[in-house]
Simulated assay, not measured.
Amino acid sequence: MDFAGAYSSGNLAYLLKGFAVTLEVAFVAIVLSFLIGCILGILRYAKIPILSPIVALVVEITRNLPLILIIFFTYFALPEVGMKMSVTAAAISALTVFESSMIAEIVRGGLNAIPKGQIEAARSSGLKYIQTLWYIILPQALKKMIPPLVSQFISLLKDTSLAIIIALPELLHNAKGIYNGEGGSKYIIPILLMAAFMYFVVNYLLSILARRLEKRLDPDRSAAKQLVNTTENLL
């Protein structure tokens, strides 16, 4: 192993360049999948005749497919019907499609966790269904969604590495380029350790952010969880 050679300024710059692509693709996919996933989740929750069952079918099919298959389909199959995309666009599209279905289930679960009595009370006070959903149900459901949403976003960031199969110049692609180059096998462990460290730092920061958001938005629940954890440790 040659840590000094592997961590040369040129190699680190190349890794950081790949990591920048990873973060860019992940950020765009997170924003798009959150917006689309929220819409799909609300449509499933609303139980609209015909539309909701169709959305449910699409979500169930998508979330039970391997992400790597969706990536292959987006990059290799869609051009056959005239929808050719760049590597970056294909990766973002595939991740967005897959993660939207996951987030849709998180949103639907969060909405279902709110007691139905609140909807009835809001409707009886004169609020329309959309107003009830927007002002009463969604704000409460969001508090319950934060931990699983952040967990899904972390998974999305890690899943960007699967785009190496279509040669997206992300972190692992560039890492592979380094240890397949002049350094050879003596660079493999140092370079992969550095890549793992980069993933860990960002994902750990996201998990800290999730805990702080949960504590701020739902302090009672966070305090209860802390009490449970403390009790378990004492036992």
Rank of each mutant, 00 (worst) to 15 (best):
T230L: 12
F3P: 09
V202M: 06
I39C: 04
L78Y: 00
S151A: 14
S101Q: 04
A29D: 00
S124G: 10
Y75G: 01
F73G: 01
K144R: 14
Q140K: 08
N229R: 14
A195G: 03
E232F: 15
A223L: 13
F76G: 05
V31Q: 04
S124N: 12
G5S: 04
P49S: 12
S151E: 11
L43E: 05
Y129P: 12
R211H: 11
S151Y: 11
G82C: 03
I61V: 15
P115L: 07
F76H: 04
L40I: 00
N180Q: 14
K144M: 13
I42T: 12
L213I: 11
F34G: 11
S161K: 00
Y135S: 10
I92V: 13
L23E: 07
D2T: 01
L23N: 05
G117M: 07
R221D: 12
V28Y: 08
I71R: 08
T96W: 04
I136Q: 01
K84S: 11
G184T: 07
V31M: 10
A94H: 10
D159I: 05
T230N: 13
L35F: 13
I71D: 02
K176D: 11
F153M: 14
L35V: 15
N11G: 02
S8P: 04
A26S: 09
L192G: 00
L12A: 07
G117W: 08
